[in-house]
Nucleic acid binder design. Structure first.
Lengths: 256, 256
DNA sequence: TAAATAGTGTCTCTTAGACATTATGGT
DNA sequence: ACCATAATGTCTAAGAGACACTATTTA
């Protein structure tokens, strides 16, 4: 390991970091049809994408996709680039998570990782076999990733933090839209929320979302060009009204 | 500027960063007594602490306190250390804000800054003249800092982001406690919230905070050892009940 | 007693929450 | 006709929001 030093204003020499990578916790919601006699919602599962490391350190273990930031790009750009290079995903929702800098977290040296999380739709992963040359990639449920796999570096911590953050965001923002088509039924929305936050229970969900003043504005009914309400019976016998997110996100306060 | 290079797994050489500092947006709430004939709440103002740079780059301009992370500490530790070294503050609330990595943001080289924000009480700043040797420090309102001062680096962006985040947190978490004594009146709490988030208006604040089920639990009445309610007439003629924060923070959702 | 802030009464309209009921279309 | 899911009806208790009113202390 080469130790590089930098000179500070008071003349002391300090080592500089050996690299600042961006690591990406890439979530997707898989959709699997249920074999039932009648139409029904598909089974959805939250999955995280991991890559099996081929070289030292942690060779053979699963790790987050990522790579070093270059001098002429921001860390966000690096994350976007690595997401594309390593998983073939170009697009989707990419957001900053946090910095991971505990001394000794990377045996290669002093490496300060910036973590991101990405939310992508399942179809964006279709070409991942082509995109990654010889990298073994896998989709795992959060439970598998956290409990069954041995993960490289501090990536277990990062995944836990990302999972907590996405749960939080699912309830407080409209990121659910990242996992839904432009138009969706309220049952679909409810299922997406519950898939990410299993504790979420709201018996009167449909009514509350459609008929209370404080929630008016986060969704609107989907309509065709003539203003006629759009509905779908893809997942049910009786057609369900389709909705879309507006760009309004209500502000919440614990005091009001 | 010395360009340092690192060798990646495929043999290419990459430059490594010249430093990863922690910069701190230090907020405090100043309290100034009003000269009135009767007792009244003091005037509170949200202030941010800045340091005047003495050397290149941006010599003479105001900047956030901060400094380079060392190899045997985490970035959080670096922030804590710099907060103490540069402002004399040891304690208070220190939380991560984000990473600032736009190419060219620092003329000294490739420098990726991690920003924190700190909330400290006014008395913690009393010894700052002693703590900083010859550094000129100043406390400014957000408006002064953002509109009147020329700030070094991208520190204006950082302060704006920190301000937005503290406003958000003030409404969604109980960080108000960082600006209040252990026991406080509801008027004080209301004033603190409004000082940080001027848009916050809640005519029935006292009633809502004390008598609605969903808010029960974030505050509790302060009582002495005999269980008798504590009150204070420090800021008013009629004594006001004192409250304290519990450690409960309610979870909010835009859907419920 | 006047002033100032703390805190409660009261009224109306909306919402929460729980269940029951009706609606729609496919098998 | 039956089933599954969509959507509405209904009822009670709680909360929002506005405003008036009472309470407690000091000058």
């Amino acid at each position: 390991m080469i130790i590089r030093k930098n000179r500070s204003k008071n003349g002391k020499k300090y080592r500089t970091p050996d690299g600042v990578p961006a690591d990406i916790v890439m979530f997707t919601l898989t959709k699997r049809e249920r074999k039932t006699v009648t139409k029904t919602l598909p089974i959805r599962e939250l999955k995280v994408m991991l890559i099996r490391r081929r070289s030292w350190p942690y060779a053979g273990m699963w790790a987050l996709p990522g790579g070093f930031c270059r001098e002429n790009e921001s860390i966000y750009d690096a994350a976007k680039r690595e997401l594309k290079e390593e998983t073939g995903v170009d697009g989707g929702h990419l957001e900053y998570l946090g910095v991971y800098s505990a001394p000794g977290r990377d045996p290669r040296g002093w490496i300060i990782s910036n973590a991101f999380y990405a939310l992508v739709e399942e179809w964006m992963l279709e070409h991942r076999q082509a995109a990654d040359d010889a990298e073994e990639v896998g989709l795992f449920t959060i439970q598998e990733a956290l409990e069954k796999l041995e993960l490289a570096f501090d990536h277990r911590d990062i995944i836990m933090d990302a999972y907590r953050k996405i749960q939080h965001q699912m309830l407080q923002t409209t990121i659910a839209k990242q996992f839904l088509p432009e138009h969706f039924t309220l049952s679909e929305l409810y299922q997406v929320i519950q898939t990410v936050v299993p504790e979420f229970k709201e018996p009167n969900f449909i009514r509350k979302i459609t008929s209370t003043r404080s929630r008016r504005g986060i969704l609107e009914e989907a309509r065709d060009e003539n203003g006629k309400p759009l509905s779908s019976n893809q997942y049910s016998q009786r057609p369900a009204q389709l909705y879309r997110f507006t760009d309004h996100i209500p502000l919440l306060s614990i005091y009001t």
